[in-house]
């Protein structure tokens, strides 16, 4: 184990090799160091440790090399995590604030019930991306996925912005089914084609208006700067917008 403490660009940086550390040992180390004023962590040899970034509740930077385990950034409040590699399931689970940037793929349930913060994923994600994201006033979670997503993305969405660029993938069309099932808030932008049978019946399709284009441009620019690609090339794609057709999708289901 090798902890190096140094200062880069006026930030107090700590390097930690995660080799052989359990998630609890690693997270305890992060929490203690963050409490002592460390502002940036460089984690190497990460191999499956869960919950990185959880319980820190500070705007520290965490740079991860290796493969973090499930629930990366669960209940996260503040940190900015960059992963140079793939991420497993549950990334950004019930995240409240902060940012996760993934130079690779992520597994299932990315951004589940997110309440704020941003997640940028260079490539594709697994099933159930962005389920039940919420928003309130200016607190609005954003997930931008460079490639493709599997079934149930945006299910039960109650707020926030889910953007599927369909860009960093070989697939021409989205293959996901049940997109936005039960959606009753928020918006999904798709940069690839879908057929209506792939959508939840609670979802409407529209073309982007000026406001949508501004929102999309803002996050595509951020995406492009994170992953060093051409924003205009992405924005030239034909985007569609998915929106909830009803605020109360199941309002008529019941009788008293």
């Amino acid at each position: 184990m090798n902890n190096n403490l140094n200062t880069i660009s006026n930030k107090k940086v700590m390097e930690i090799s995660a080799d052989g550390l359990s998630y609890r040992e690693l997270n305890t180390k992060l929490r203690e160091a963050a409490a002592q004023g460390i502002e940036k962590f460089k984690l190497t040899d990460v191999c499956g440790q869960r919950y990185l970034g959880t319980g820190l509740n500070k705007p520290v930077e965490i740079d991860i090399r290796g493969t973090p385990g499930n629930d990366l950034g669960a209940f996260m409040e503040g940190p900015e995590i960059t992963v140079h590699g793939n991420v497993q399931d549950g990334c950004g689970n019930t995240m409240n604030d902060g940012e996760i940037i993934v130079h690779g793929h992520t597994g299932d349930v990315v951004g589940f019930s997110a309440r704020g913060g941003k997640i940028f994923i260079r490539d594709s994600v697994g099933y159930r991306a962005g389920i039940h994201m919420k928003e309130y006033k200016d607190k609005k979670p954003v997930i931008v996925i460079g490639g493709n997503a599997q079934d149930f993305c945006g299910e039960y969405m109650a707020g926030g912005i889910l953007i599927l660029l369909g860009f960093n993938t070989h697939e021409v069309n989205f293959k996901a089914n049940f997109i936005g099932t039960g959606m009753h808030g928020g918006v999904i932008y798709l940069g690839n084609k879908v057929e209506t049978y792939q959508l939840g019946k609670e979802v409407g399709i529209a073309e982007l208006d000026e406001n949508d284009n501004n929102v999309l441009r803002q996050y595509v620019n951020e995406f492009a700067s994170h992953f060093n690609c051409d924003a205009e090339e992405i924005l030239n794609r034909q985007f569609i917008k998915l929106f909830p057709r009803w605020l109360r999708p199941y309002g008529q289901l019941y009788v008293y």
Partner: peptide, 21 residues
């Protein structure tokens, strides 16, 4: 209620059957 639950005013607050994680 909408501020505590963090969902838009007047929408149904839907709790899915399972926890999807």
């Amino acid at each position: 209620v909408s501020s505590t639950r963090m969902i838009p005013h007047g929408t149904d607050a839907l709790s899915p059957a399972p926890q999807h994680d």
